[in-house]
């Protein structure tokens, strides 16, 4: 259980991550708002409370790694990395700009702290499995975390990776499914329903936890704690989240996947945070 003070601190950090992200996207004119806002609490929980990382040494071999397989969520990952001191937050002004080192999808060759390049959906989890295998081989106790979209889970490659992780008993692999219920063309339930995720992951031999409120720090951290107590299996934590969380008028709409924020919407959102 978090202390009141800690919870308030984390909440404040998530607020800051959202603000930095929305401002950066507003500056470019357009961007992936829905799927960045849905994972703000998760990223803060990971970077502020869970992951073993050293921002001054991003390639530290003993670090915990994060693969954001839904690579289009890059803006908020960059925001959190900047908040952690991986690079100057001023750099966020250059998101998607000409010659930028912060491209729209996660790029490990350009951004300190990004552990895997992603962008074509479904490929990141395979890479995360590869990382966890490497750690297992080298007897490192580091964890590998991955964030996979609910729509993204329609890619067969995700299930190819899921099978392999179970076979290899990758107990230090924790995958978060950002189950925000929306994809580009509609609600996931209408396009291709993948729910219930926990049942699927269990059928494929994983330890699966369903988190009722994917924006609650207590619930997220408790699930990660539970995962770490459970040996011999990889872990899937299904986060019931809200697409475009805290952006007034856009919450829980699939149209929020990628859109242009007006000045008014930005101000409203920032106030709302």
């Amino acid at each position: 259980m978090l202390t009141e003070e800690r919870r308030a601190f984390l909440t404040q950090r998530a607020r800051q991550a959202r603000a930095l992200t929305l401002e950066a996207i507003y500056r470019v004119g357009r961007g992936h708002i829905g799927g960045t806002m849905s994972i703000a609490e998760l990223l803060i929980a990971l970077y502020d409370d869970v992951m073993r990382v050293d921002p001054s040494n991003p390639s530290w071999p003993e670090r915990d790694r994060l693969v954001v397989s839904k690579g289009h969520a890059a803006p908020i990952v960059y925001a959190v990395l900047a908040m952690k001191g991986y690079f100057d937050p001023k750099l966020l002004d250059t998101l998607n700009a000409n010659g930028t080192t912060l491209p729209s999808h996660c790029d490990m060759r350009k951004v300190p702290g990004i552990d895997m390049t992603a962008g074509s959906l479904g490929q990141g989890l395979s890479a995360a499995v590869g990382m966890a295998l490497a750690n297992q081989m080298d007897h490192r106790d580091s964890y590998v975390y991955a964030i996979v979209g609910d729509g993204e889970s329609q890619e067969g490659q995700v299930w190819e990776a899921v099978m392999l992780a179970a076979q290899r008993k990758l107990e230090h692999l924790i995958v978060f499914v950002d189950d925000n219920g929306c994809q580009v063309d509609g609600f996931t339930g209408d396009i291709l329903n993948m729910r219930p995720f926990d049942q699927k992951y269990r059928a494929f031999g994983w330890h699966a936890i369903y988190v009722e409120d994917g924006h609650s720090f207590d619930q997220i951290l408790d699930a990660i704690h539970q995962a770490k107590q459970t040996p011999d299996r990889p872990h899937a934590i299904i986060l019931n989240t809200v697409k475009a969380k805290h952006v007034p008028g856009a919450e829980n709409t699939y149209q929020s996947h990628c859109f242009s924020l007006t000045r008014e919407q930005l101000d409203n959102s920032l106030r709302n945070l």
């Binding site: 729209s104 999808h105 992603a118 962008g119």
Partner: peptide, 17 residues
């Protein structure tokens, strides 16, 4: 196979797209 976004035209999406 009818594809939009050919060549460099998904300019902002970067190399993966």
């Amino acid at each position: 196979i009818a594809c939009s976004h050919g060549g460099l035209t998904p300019a902002n999406d970067g190399a993966s797209h």
